[in-house]
Structures are given as C-alpha cells and as structure tokens.
Design a binder for these strands. Structure first.
Lengths: 262, 262
DNA sequence: AACAAAAGAGAGCGCTGCTCTTGACAAGCT
DNA sequence: AGCTTGTCAAGAGCAGCGCTCTCTTTTGTT
C-alpha cells in the first residue's frame, strides 16, 4: 500500500537518500512515489476544478508525462477517484480524531462540538473533496466497498464513541427523552446497530444519534454547497455552533461534564 | 441571442384577434413545444445517467436532430441545466405544497411531517434531480440567481409558513426552549430573517427552524446518496419518520393540534 | 410567387477516457 | 558478457463531448 507524502517532499524519486529503506527495489520505490505524485496532483486538480472535471490527461500533463503513461499506475479514472476518496476520508478522519482527542475525555459535549467543528472546518477548506465524499454520487461510479468502508466510517465511529462513553459516564440524559414511537422493523435495525458497535445506549438514543449524524452533515452540506443565500449569515460559524448546541441536546448530551475539572 | 418564450410578449399588438388559442404564431408554438421536448428528454437523460453525463448530443439524438440544431433552442449545456434546475425546483415545490395543503391548517405537526415526507418521496423518486438541486454543485456552473431563487425557496417558505402559523396559533412551545447563547452577529442575522419573512417567532426559534431545515435535507441526502450502508435500515421510511418526530420537537411543534377536530 | 426569418445539416476544433502497439531501458539469470 | 524478462514512456487512434461556423432547406408571411 502506498503512503502519503507531505507537501515538503517534491520529486525526489531519483534521489534516494540511503539504502535504509526496506527490501524495496528502486523500481518499487519509484513506482510508489509516482502513484503518490499522481494522487497529489489529482487532489490539486480536484480542489481547483471539481470531481466531474477531474481529468487523467491533465494530471498527466502536470506530471510531465504523456497521457497513456499514467495508466501504468492508475487503472482508470474511477480508480483515481477511489484513491482520492480514500485519501480524503483518511484526512477527514485524522483531523476529526485529532480535534476530538484534544478535548478531555470526560467533556463529552466538548468532544462532540470538536467533532462537528472539525468536520465543518475540513469541509469548508476542501469543498471539492467534501463534495466527493458526501455530495451527489458521481454517476456511473460505484466506490468499491471493500476499500472505502473502513476509512468512510471513521467519523461516525468517533461520534458513537463519544455518545457511548457519555452514556456510560452518566452524562447522557437518556431516558427522559421520550421520542417517538419506534416501529418494529426500525427497532430491529437499531438493535442490530447496538450489537454491531457493542453499544449500551437505548434504541431511542441510537436513533437520535443517527439523526444527529445526518443533521450534522446536513448543516455542513448546506454551508459547503451554498444552500443558504450568499448574504444570509454573516458569521456562519456562529450559526453552526448554535446548531451543534441544539444537536447536543437532541443526543442527550449535557453541556458540561458530570464533574468539574479539579 | 435567443430567449425563452415564457408568456405574452410585448410586441404582439399586431395580432390581437379573437382567437381562442393564445396569440402565438405557429413558429412560436412549435418553438415552445421543442423547448419543452428538450427539457423532457433532458430530464429523462438526467434521471438515467446523472447530471455530469448530461449530454446535449444525446438529447439531440433522442430528439431526432443533429447536435448543432439544439443550440437554436438552448444556449448551452449550462442553460439546459438551468432549465432542468428550475423544472425540478418547481416539481418539488408543487408536490410539497400539495402534501402540506392536504393536511388541516391547524395540524401544524401533521403539516410539518407531510412536508418532510414529500421532500423525501420526491428525492427518492428523482435522485438525479435531487442531486442537482441539493448535492454537489456542478463545477464551473453557477445557477443564475435571478431565475432560480424564487423556485428554489419554495420549500423553506412552506416550512417557515408552517412554523409561523403554529406559533401564532399557540402551537409552538417556544419560550421554554432555552437553547444556546446566540452571539451578536447571529442575532442580527436572525432578526434580519425575521424582518424579511415578517415572522413573529423568536430568534431562537428562527435558528432552530434553520437547523430543522438543514437537518431535514441532511436526512434525505443521507438516504438519497446512500450514506447509510445498504443493509443498515430495512425500512428507511420508519427511521425518517422518527427523525421527523424528533425534529418537530426541536422546532417546538406539539405532536397534536391545539384543539381536537370537531 | 417572392422574400426573409427560422431551423436543420454538416464540417470542424479542441478536449476527454481509454486501448493498442512500438521502442527504449533496466533488472535478473545463465 | 549475453540473453531474457519486466517495466515504462510514447504515439497513434477510436469514440464521445461542447461548441462554432457555414451552408442549405424549410416555413410563415407579404
């Protein structure tokens, strides 16, 4: 598998520092480097012109190579889309994880807010990547589930982790949330989710968690996709923070941790 | 430069005779019909292959005409996208309005649920159109605001209408919703919205209305864009109805009208 | 019938994804 | 060293795309 390089590295494929690398032949090293370059250029192209305009020929031009040559490294345009998809999922997941872990473990509401803000920040910084992940599905392209489900579920995993630990710490106002009648089929689905994630929260709270999840991305999408008018909200972050506070209440999160910081 | 014939033109004063048919020349009739055919075929193409694959040449083929001929009727591919956008906005608006008006005026929660279900039903029936309206913005395409804002705001107008009339009828549990601290800039924006729509509800409730709005479309988008796994929810409508019930509570709507039906 | 406006047809430009073939070069084995 | 094999870049080419231009045909009106 290939690894992403930071933007400080440019094109040092012809300049191997030392033989301390593992048992990789120069060929393999050059190949992974070229694939990484293709992903980097593809990301740039994606951010500048959008997913639908992502062109293998343009990437080849930026790479200084004829168009057919990139097919040695990337099977097709869809394959490049998949690579960019995984790359974007992991970048989002990394930033969300970092933001969440920067907040004390017992401040569940704070962790939830950090998660939401991290998603929004990343989405507004990388709107094309966000659109690729959470916008309209690219027509004719089906992401290979075996490669994208793991990185694609990191955010929701972080969210359920926060809610579950809040519940176990007693920081979730659970049972006073009456909610709506849950039909049988939905009840069964929610129980399956509980089992899958090993959750101890109630089905009602699982359903509310799903709502909070989709509502969070709905709010981010509205902003990233310019569904609000251009002049409706002068400081959209304030609106988003308000939404997060209301959504925390929907999930049952208390605004403060159960005990004060000593 | 061509322009679409929408309604009576200015310079038909030379032809006012008493024909029961509208004062359109056969040329104009044929032209309007051809444009309507192009929109119809474009919709079919859109539904089958998605917005990014919408091809003027394919529409021309379906129309039985050479590709350059359609440029007599549609200025460009973006122009066709705009026509489809307006068409879709109006279809969604019509269905939402019909669904809302089928519920008694004083059943505000019922009207809200009808609105939400209408949006979801239309989105799942016309996923490509929904993606065009609420998904990733088509790169390089900017919808002309002067033609799309009016049809594009019909759903949110219907939603604020429901919430406002619920509030005026006393059916909105308004002031006990404490909510979060609203900063000054957001407060000013919310007051501007109140003024723009002539609302009497509080700023807190306006903010919650915006959240409900974006959350509704977030839930619909998650379903329409297959963000849930394929086997996570066996009866997604039940999950959506549950979400609607919770969101109605977020907006302050009571589950029943203030007085029973006589 | 004559005329002018409108519409269709066709060629063409530059772009796209993708395939196939050819030639150059490096790595590894005898 | 000689040879084979694998890898890579390059180029031509196919079909499709949006769009423009010119030319011809149709059509409604005078």
């Amino acid at each position: 598998m290939l690894e992403l390089v930071t933007d400080t590295e440019k094109k040092d494929a012809t300049n191997p520092p030392a033989a301390s690398a593992p048992a990789l032949t120069p060929r393999q090293r050059a190949r992974t480097q070229t694939v990484a370059d293709i992903i980097r250029l593809g990301r740039r192209h994606l951010a500048l012109h959008g997913a639908a305009a992502l062109s293998l020929r343009a990437v080849a031009r930026d790479l200084g190579v004829v168009s057919s040559a990139v097919y040695r490294y990337v099977e097709s345009r869809d394959e490049l889309l998949t690579l960019l998809l995984i790359d974007a999922y992991n970048e989002l997941g990394d930033e969300v994880d970092a933001a969440v872990e920067a907040v004390p473990v017992d401040d569940h509401a704070g962790r939830f807010a950090a998660l939401g803000r991290a998603v929004r920040t990343w989405a507004l910084r990388e709107p094309a990547s966000y659109a690729l992940l959470f916008g309209s599905p690219v027509p004719g392209y089906n992401a290979p589930a075996e490669r994208t489900t793991v990185p694609g579920t990191r955010v929701i995993l972080a969210l359920v982790g926060i809610l579950e630990s809040a519940f176990q710490a007693g920081g979730l106002a659970s049972e006073d949330k009456v909610g709506a009648w849950i039909p049988a089929a939905l009840q069964a689905d929610l129980e399956a989710i509980r089992g899958q994630f090993g959750l101890t929260v109630s089905e009602e709270l699982v359903a509310r968690g799903v709502l909070v999840w989709s509502a969070l991305f709905g709010a981010v999408s509205f902003e990233a996709f310019n569904q609000y008018g251009p002049d409706t909200f002068s400081v959209p972050a304030e609106l988003f923070d308000h939404h997060l506070a209301v959504l925390a209440g929907v999930a049952g999160l208390q605004p403060r941790p159960s005990r004060d910081d000593g």
